[in-house]
Design a protein around this nucleic acid. Structure first.
Lengths: 142, 142
DNA sequence: GTCTATGCAAACCCTTTGCAGCCAT
DNA sequence: ATGGCTGCAAAGGGTTTGCATAGAC
């Protein structure tokens, strides 16, 4: 996302587009993965050596609130972040622990539509996949 | 699950069926919900006043490893437990935070089967639903 | 008797908070 | 000048660990 658009989006959400928030967003975007707050912290630190971990946490929170980032509270107890905000899911390899993006299928929505559980209004449906990635499957032969 | 079977299952998993583990399991089973470790702790305490929270954590872990309980690392940062071990999903009400069980549909498996993501072998697929339960929908009119 | 489990306290990790100083408007 | 934002340190909450004692086989 271009810096100008980023600034606009943050302002619209009631946040000031500061150097720290921009840096946090740019690194999150550039990492192309699912880093933790600390991962982002270490990456941003190279550019802004005086930034604190608390600021990174706060920045990430404001990015999520602004809708330019997503927080995924994984099963490992630590939160991961990503700059992808369109609907997609995650598959975690139980061997190497890496997280892979999975695209949402139209079938999935049709399936969720059938669930209408006893008056419960479903607003969001998250699919969390666990398994073995191709690389680990070859290495461990299982 | 009858006590005798419970003992057998635990022994088979390499755990000693102690009074504490039995009590933790029985209360977890009786609670019929998705309690946290501390919820279970408070319930078991009535029966075993000298039990410690650490023991409850360890007991729950051994129950999960034995396959008689499931741990669900929710999005709220605290782990919840349940004695249901068959496949089903959870819907969390964003207003009252209650967790409701959702039965797995055959459609769901068919949908997951289509996902076969780039050599990734899916072993488990968890569906996590968020929304508003019937009660809260009435109270808040949204 | 051996070996595991318990209870207690302390440590642990990730995350949040309080607050003085800073920066943008 | 006003207000939110930063950085620092300290607190917080849930969970785990180390160790002496108690309990199961």
């Amino acid at each position: 996302m271009p810096e100008l658009v980023f600034d606009q989006v943050l302002e619209q959400a009631g946040f000031r587009p500061t150097r720290q928030r921009r840096a946090v967003y740019e690194h999150l975007e550039a990492m192309h993965g699912h880093p933790t707050a600390e991962d982002v912290f270490h990456a941003v630190r190279i550019e802004l050596p005086r930034i604190s971990l608390a600021t990174v946490y706060k920045a990430l929170e404001s990015l999520v609130e602004s809708g330019v980032a997503q927080k995924m509270s994984g099963a490992d107890g630590t939160a991961h972040f990503e700059s992808r905000v369109d609907e997609h899911f995650h598959a975690r390899c139980r061997a190497c622990n890496r997280i892979v993006d999975v695209e949402a299928l139209p079938e999935f929505h049709r399936c969720v539509d059938k669930i209408r559980t006893a008056g419960f209004t479903i607003e969001r449906a998250r699919l969390e996949l666990t398994g073995i990635c191709e690389l680990c499957a070859r290495q461990h032969h299982n």
